[in-house]
């Protein structure tokens, strides 16, 4: 079966993201980011260090992965939970086509609810530095896309994708990422920071990772996550538990 994009799956996916309550959260996260950026700009003025810190610790570390988690699990987990995914799967189309199409929707959500707000927040914090905004936009897109692939795989692996995804973000990316420097080699957020630093040349995002490694690792997660999700979906079990 050839792997392409299915406009029908994209259309259904887009409607399903906003058809559930968690769709509201997608609107909430960028509002918090932009509100906070406005508040800080009002209180501290244009301060490069503060701007980078806020965009990094709130934007790249919290908003981007959470938007990716909400969008991706909202696209896959409910349909798998209630079995309605069978209507997509009982069709003569490649499972990878389904996954790719759903990921496109998820990455689209990341673009609208994380990448654009990140760029806007960067411009609010440092109005005259479009390079910083571009850097955080590209970093957010790369990190968000990798997170989407990761959470897509999680969604087909377990019924508790949201909880495990949150734990992963909290423990691995948050807690251990801050304590153990070695985690950077296996941290999507740290790769996103390295990519941001590379694009926003001249701004110190303080990431000790080569951009080559960060881009390569991001691509590996994106491709591997997509492929493994499709593979797992091929073995979807209608009767539930293994």
């Amino acid at each position: 079966m050839s792997v392409t994009l299915s406009p029908t799956v994209v259309r259904l996916g887009t409607r399903s993201v906003f058809g559930h309550k968690r769709g509201i959260l997608l609107f909430l996260l960028p509002v918090v980011l932009l509100g906070l950026a406005g508040l800080i700009r009002g209180l501290a003025g244009q301060d490069e260090r503060v701007a980078v810190d806020v965009l990094q610790s709130l934007g790249l570390t919290v908003v981007v992965p959470l938007v990716a988690l909400l969008a991706t699990t909202g696209l896959l987990a409910p349909e798998i939970d209630d079995g309605s995914v069978a209507y997509l799967l009982a069709k003569p189309i490649s499972r990878h086509t389904i996954v790719l199409s759903k990921l496109l929707v998820a990455i689209g959500c990341v673009f609208v609810f994380a990448v654009l707000p990140m760029a806007a927040a960067a411009l609010i914090l440092l109005t005259n530095e479009p390079r910083l905004a571009l850097g955080f936009a590209v970093g957010s897109l790369a990190g968000g896309a990798a997170y989407c692939a990761l959470f897509a795989f999680l969604s087909v692996l377990t019924r508790h994708a949201v909880v495990i995804g949150l734990l992963y973000l909290l423990v691995w990316e948050g807690l251990l990422g801050g304590l153990l420097d070695g985690v950077r080699w296996l941290s999507v957020t740290r790769w996103a920071r390295a990519i941001t630093e590379e694009v926003a040349a001249g701004f110190d995002v303080v990431e000790r990772l080569g951009p080559g490694y960060a881009i390569g690792a991001t691509l590996v997660v994106l491709v591997l996550g997509t492929w493994l999700t499709g593979r797992r979906l091929r073995a979807f079990n209608l009767t539930g538990d293994e």
Binding site: R15, S16, G19, G83, S84, A86, A90, R95, R234, L238
Partner: peptide, 22 residues
């Protein structure tokens, strides 16, 4: 693991969940 069979097969599952928003 053979998607092509669905050209010939129609399935009506027991579970009621559908795409309720459509």
């Amino acid at each position: 693991r053979n998607e092509s069979v669905y050209r010939q097969v129609g399935l009506v599952p027991e579970r009621e969940a559908l795409f309720d928003y459509l």
